[in-house]
């Protein structure tokens, strides 16, 4: 039950983009077309889940035993960046089809702040749990964060594709109106607050 609640909470109530304001750069940059948004969303889900796993390993094997928790941010950045590079290489070799679909998005999110954010949030939320619970909950939170990101991206892409045709005042065309829409969407997502404690 806790896993379901976590998934719901992290994807909607604490939506990465619209409630925690993380990962705004790809949210605005890659949301012009729906297909791009889907590709980016899948890549983010993939990387966030992986990053949660690696961050957990690093936390339990290096940071906690040697009591160097103050290096957490920089070590996480290092680890995630390396991981994404490695995964990109492996995918390119093993599955060219998957590389075609995800390839251009992977380098973009090497150390996306949403990816880093989800690992740090995992650490904050589940540090005092048992090893197993903190790993599995972290993975669920990672995947959920990615799903939430993809939901936000898809909604935004749909809105922006329609905005292209709308009669928007000249000064507001393009990014300005997109920012306003993003703000209104964030308001709408406030409606989820309080559903889960």
């Amino acid at each position: 039950m806790e896993y379901l609640t976590t998934l719901f909470k992290v994807s909607l109530i604490q939506n990465m983009v619209l409630a925690q304001f993380l990962g705004l750069c790809p949210f605005v940059g890659v949301s012009k077309k729906r297909e791009d948004a889907v590709g980016m969303g899948i890549a983010v889900i993939f990387v966030m889940t992986l990053a949660s796993l690696v961050a957990w390993i690093v936390e339990r094997l290096i940071l906690t035993p040697y009591e160097i928790g103050y290096l957490r941010t920089i070590v996480y950045i290092l680890v995630i960046a390396t991981l994404v590079q490695l995964v990109e290489m492996i995918i390119r070799k093993v599955s060219p089809a998957l590389y075609e679909a995800l390839g251009i998005y992977l380098p973009l999110i090497t150390t996306n702040c949403a990816v880093l954010g989800v690992t740090l949030l995992n650490q904050n939320a589940y540090a005092d749990r048992t090893a197993f619970a903190s790993l599995t909950l972290g993975l669920v939170q990672g995947a959920g964060g990615g799903i939430g990101f993809m939901i936000a991206m898809l909604l935004m892409a749909g809105i922006r594709q329609r905005l292209e045709l709308a009669a928007v005042p000249k000064a507001m065309r393009g990014l300005p109106i997109a920012f306003i829409c993003a703000g209104l969407m964030a308001f709408a997502f406030l409606g989820f607050v309080g559903i889960v404690k």
Binding site: I62, I68, Y70, L71, I74, V75, L78, V79
Partner: peptide, 8 residues
């Protein structure tokens, strides 16, 4: 800190 980051 220095050693950890260097090694990593």
């Amino acid at each position: 800190a220095v050693v950890t980051l260097l090694v990593l």
